[in-house]
Nucleic acid binder design. Sequence first.
RNA 1: CGGGGUGUAGCGCAGCCCGGUUAGCGCGCGUCGUUCGGGACGACGAGGUCGGAGGUUCAAAUCCUCUCACCCCGACCA
Length: 488
Amino acid sequence: MSKGVTPQSKDFAAWYTDVVVKTGLADYGPVKGTMVIKPYGFSLWQNIKKSLDDMLVSSGHQNAYFPLFIPKSFLAQEAEHVEGFAKECAVVTHTRLKADDDDLIVDPDSKLEEEVIVRPTSETVIWSMYKKWIQSYRDLPILINQWANIVRWEMRTRLFLRTTEFLWQEGHTAHATAKEAEEETLKILDIYRTLAEDYLALPVLTGIKTDAEKFAGADRTYCIEAMMGDKRALQAGTSHNLGQNFAKAFNVTFQTKDNQEELVFATSWGVSTRLVGALIMSHGDDKGLRLPPKVAPIQVMIIPIGKTDDEKKQAIEFINPAVSTLRKSGVRVEVDDRNESPGFKFNDWEMKGVPLRLEIGPRDMAENSVSISRRDSGEKSAIGINDVAKSIPALLDNIQQNLFQQAQSFRNSHTKKIDSYDEFKSFMNETGGFALCGWDGTAETEQSIKNETKATIRCIPLSDNPKGLKCIYSGKAAKHEVIFAKAY
RNA sequence: CGGGGUGUAGCGCAGCCCGGUUAGCGCGCGUCGUUCGGGACGACGAGGUCGGAGGUUCAAAUCCUCUCACCCCGACCA
């Protein structure tokens, strides 16, 4: 294995893969498009998961678990939904294997009467259950979330960004009124924005998807969109207002207070392990990862330095009281006592994105201090041993803020208002970034622009104000001011 | 499914065109010793049905045929 990772400027895609594999976040699985999330990557995911789960639970949602397998017929119940997912479903057709000479073959006698699909998302199975659970307005709302794995048999995959199987959470709520469902959809969008910005240090645009880009079966899809280090857009989370579409498909009605029968209103929403990819691509640099402290598996790595084992042991003893204090206050601190050279360890933990590194050697101990390095800025300084425990939380906080600000100013400096299509084309082909443009609201315009430039409408920002704008493509009066970008 | 490419040690590769008997190199790995403040070094050592099947030949990693797998580009993709 060569040292370090491919520089971003040389090949962003190769840099990304290098980072994921060499830092031990994930590895390729044996089946095409699958990945193993290794302990370091899983720990990162669990920190993200914990942050979001706390917010979901404290906003009144409950966790539950629905089956992996769905009757094939369920998918067909909602017309747009089936069209959206049919092409990427794993289908279970048999239940047994049998020996055939030296080989294992599918036992033809075990063919299923009704084939079963592996969930690509759970709306259908969940709504088939909600039908049983909902009779009266008193049964509403239902606010359920599940943490699960799903399978979408995509043709082209990339670690964390698009894998055949991935982990996510999917919320599925049922409401008595359209207003309540819309409020829920927006509440979740705001929780996702908070997760991205306050925990992942990832500035996001919130907006609504065009009909072409919305979820198959939704009335409206809201999303958070982020800019990656190569200026391409990544959809980081979606929140759908499903209206009464799934209630119609599964015939889920309830009795109102005044004894009327009405269809239930629904929402669904999800974020996935793709967020890990978003973190990597928005904060990473040529040395590797730069993890935001709030979700970093290790926040502080301690490197003892000494010519002898004895000196290293002294260094560890020197820092131990501070380590205990930090751990008690919830800081994730580790000591690297591997038998490697200090230089190797510095590079290793920098690649792995640990926010703070403490070096302790004879020189530090003589000064009664420790050397401290920030991964975000590369800054190094010395801190008195007695100040370590109290300054580190503040430093971690500062790193969290700084990563957010760097990502935000990067995005802002690559976001441009454009009103000529010629400029738009060269922006998409050469410069790259987010283009803020007028759009006439037609699917034809959207499709033509996609065909000609590969740029898509990422979202109609919630702050939409098309007054006086003209469509970048047709020149007609703009219906919306939208964000165009090339996306993952 | 179209176009291109690659399969040789855990990883990255050379050898193949022009067949030759013990198949190499770097990294990594093991043991021991010296090192240790920005990717240390030495000695010794372990590790291979050369993707698979068939063929040509005295002889195949190398030539021929078939086959499988994976990667990249495209089409596709909430």
